[in-house]
Nucleic acid binder design. Structure first.
Ligand SMILES: [Zn+2]
Ligand SMILES: [Zn+2]
Ligand SMILES: [Zn+2]
Ligand SMILES: [Zn+2]
Lengths: 161, 161
DNA sequence: TTAGAACAATCTGTCCTC
DNA sequence: AGAGGACAGATTGTTCTA
């Protein structure tokens, strides 16, 4: 799953619904609102859509760590550095570095900032399982980077069912 | 020695020569061509002018390594990575990173490229002691960086004595 | 499931010898 | 003086336990 663009389509158009029902379209998940019980279930679908990708670096995620879906290395990175921000220096001095697992070295300052941006918290964690998925903020990579991949994440979604 | 600009002045102007002879001017070295025997001697003066600064990262240089005046860490970096260029990835993906000892993390790809740019060579070394100083190419840091310090280096200087 | 500890790998820099 | 080996520190990543 390396497509550039990802969209959520909410529709009541019969033709489109029939088209989606008739054919299995790659990289596409459809959700019938009538069978949707709760937000957790919807986010579960979105997780599959995301292929469980780390929100920080796009590596394969191992699960929710400090409230955010991340890989193992970003998890331990946040654990180690959450209180060390002042010690970390931006490699570019611009605070605009993109963080990507494909590049072996990463800017620790911008990596930690991204952790906070997407909502990783040690002390202010939300305890309820179901609220966990909501806590992640939708944050895009800095605009200067060309490959602007990041997992879709539902934020404060209100079911209008 | 952290001055921004450095110049070589070649002069036969008596007033200027008298001024330079009369006063000890900080960060300034004068060379009397009449007492100059060879290129090595001139480069020795230039070394003092440079304060023996690493051509790669502006750290204190330990001497000539692989034909170029560098610090210990840049020396061992080149030794280890001279044949590993393909394994090193540019942190910025632009190949334009500035390399400076004051910043703890460095882009290895751009650091190695800079090593080659300034003429570090393992296999194609010039053996003669006296030619050593000539082999370094004068290469400036990438233009996007603001602190454009680099040691002066004499390249193919021809004595017109 | 996920937080944290323990272990391991990687990368970098310094010291030492020849 | 400079090349290379060896050791050491910093940083990052993986595995294991509970
Ligand atoms: Zn990650
Ligand atoms: Zn950065
Ligand atoms: Zn250096
Ligand atoms: Zn670079």
């Amino acid at each position: 799953m390396d497509n550039e663009n990802r969209v959520i389509i909410l529709t009541s158009n019969e033709d489109l619904i029939n088209q989606l029902s008739a054919n299995k379209i790659p990289d596409t998940h459809t959700i019938n609102f009538n069978y949707l019980d709760n937000l957790s279930q919807l986010n579960s679908k979105i997780d599959k859509f995301n292929d469980r990708i780390c929100v920080i670096c796009r590596n394969v995620a191992i699960g929710y760590n400090y409230d955010v879906l991340t890989c193992a290395s970003c998890r331990i990175f946040f654990y180690r550095n959450q209180n060390q921000r002042n010690k970390l220096k931006c490699l570019l001095r611009q605070g605009q570095c993109s963080i990507d697992y494909k590049h072996d070295r990463k800017c620790p300052r911008c990596r930690l900032d991204r952790c906070f941006q997407v909502g990783m918290r040690k002390d202010l964690r939300i305890n309820h399982q179901q609220k966990r998925h909501i806590s992640s903020k939708s944050v895009s990579q800095p605009t200067h980077t060309t490959d602007n991949h990041f997992p879709l994440k539902l934020v404060d979604f209100v079911l209008s069912k």
